[in-house]
Design a protein around this nucleic acid. Structure first.
Length: 272
DNA sequence: TTAGCCCTGAGA
DNA sequence: TCTCAGGGCTAA
């Protein structure tokens, strides 16, 4: 469940670790998450330098020399971490990258296999379709633009926040946390919310995401940094995963409901 | 707009 | 042994 803050942390770590580094070897173990043939993957990557590591929505992007980009999506359980050697017996290991002048290898592991690895050209027209469809980053939207964007939506606000075509980067955790901070019931319909409530929600989203990045993201089950350490923002969750516990603002028991097939946690007193 | 599918490990 | 977790996609 890595969302925007977790991928942002990974991108920053990796930029420091492999920014400018030359890929010496690429190996594929489980090709199911690769959207390019394994042979192409193993042949195209070696000899290219990592120009930069960036993030777009929940995608991580390795910008390589020669106009190639490696896009990674982590799905629910994707992990990227350093190891001395790939554990060949691990059935969930998908690929590894080795770099010149750096010992060990960078492994991509994903037990639930919802992740994706896509090789694409750098030109805008050759973006993977799922990246091309992404809406703007929360930071790049003004509060007014956010309110305009969501004002016409008829789906429930929680579902609209999870729609990556509208705005990229929010997942279940940060949607719930932001709605709590903004005092909005996840079942509300955006087109029936007053404009100032929507601008307040935008502020809550930007604030929540920034705090999460500053604390190294949320580690619930699988998310970890490339050195194996965990994020700390899960300790600051106000509603997510706290059904039955008391609301940190008012003491009311946090409720859990299903919306669009996902769990939603909210405070029935604070969120209206 | 929504339901169902993919996928596997954890927990009941 | 069954149920649940859910991001992104497709079909209804």
């Amino acid at each position: 469940m890595p969302e925007l803050p977790e991928i942002e942390c990974l991108a920053r770590e990796l930029q420091g670790q492999i920014g400018g580094a030359l890929i010496s070897r690429a190996r594929v173990y489980q090709s199911i998450i690769l959207k390019s043939p394994p042979g192409v993957f193993e042949a195209e990557l070696p000899g290219r330098r990592v120009e930069s590591v960036t993030r777009r929505g929940k995608f991580l992007c390795l910008d390589l020399t020669g106009g190639l980009r490696l896009w990674l999506h982590f799905g629910m359980t994707g992990q990227l971490f350093w190891s001395e050697a790939p554990a060949l017996a691990d059935p969930h290991l998908h690929f590894s990258l080795e770099f010149e002048a750096r010992s060990g290898c960078l492994l991509f592991r994903d037990p639930r296999r919802f992740g994706k690895a896509v090789l694409a050209g750098a030109e805008g027209g050759r973006l993977p379709p799922s990246v091309g469809r992404l809406g703007p980053e929360p930071d790049f939207l003004s509060a007014e633009a956010f309110a305009m964007l969501f004002r016409s939506r008829r789906a429930r606000i929680k579902s609209a926040l999870l729609d990556q075509r509208l705005m990229a980067g929010l997942g279940n955790i940060y949607a719930d946390e932001s709605l709590h901070r903004a005092g909005i019931d996840p079942r509300r319909r955006p087109h029936r919310l007053r404009r100032e409530r929507l601008t307040r929600l935008h502020g809550a989203i930007v604030e929540t995401l920034a705090e999460a990045v500053a604390r190294g993201g949320s580690s619930i089950d699988d998310y970890q940094h490339t050195d194996g350490s965990r994020g700390r923002f899960q300790e600051s969750h106000r509603v997510y995963g706290r059904a039955g516990s008391s609301c940190l603002s008012c003491g009311t028991a946090i409720r859990r409901i299903k919306l669009a097939g996902r769990s939603s946690f909210y405070c029935p007193a604070c969120q209206r």
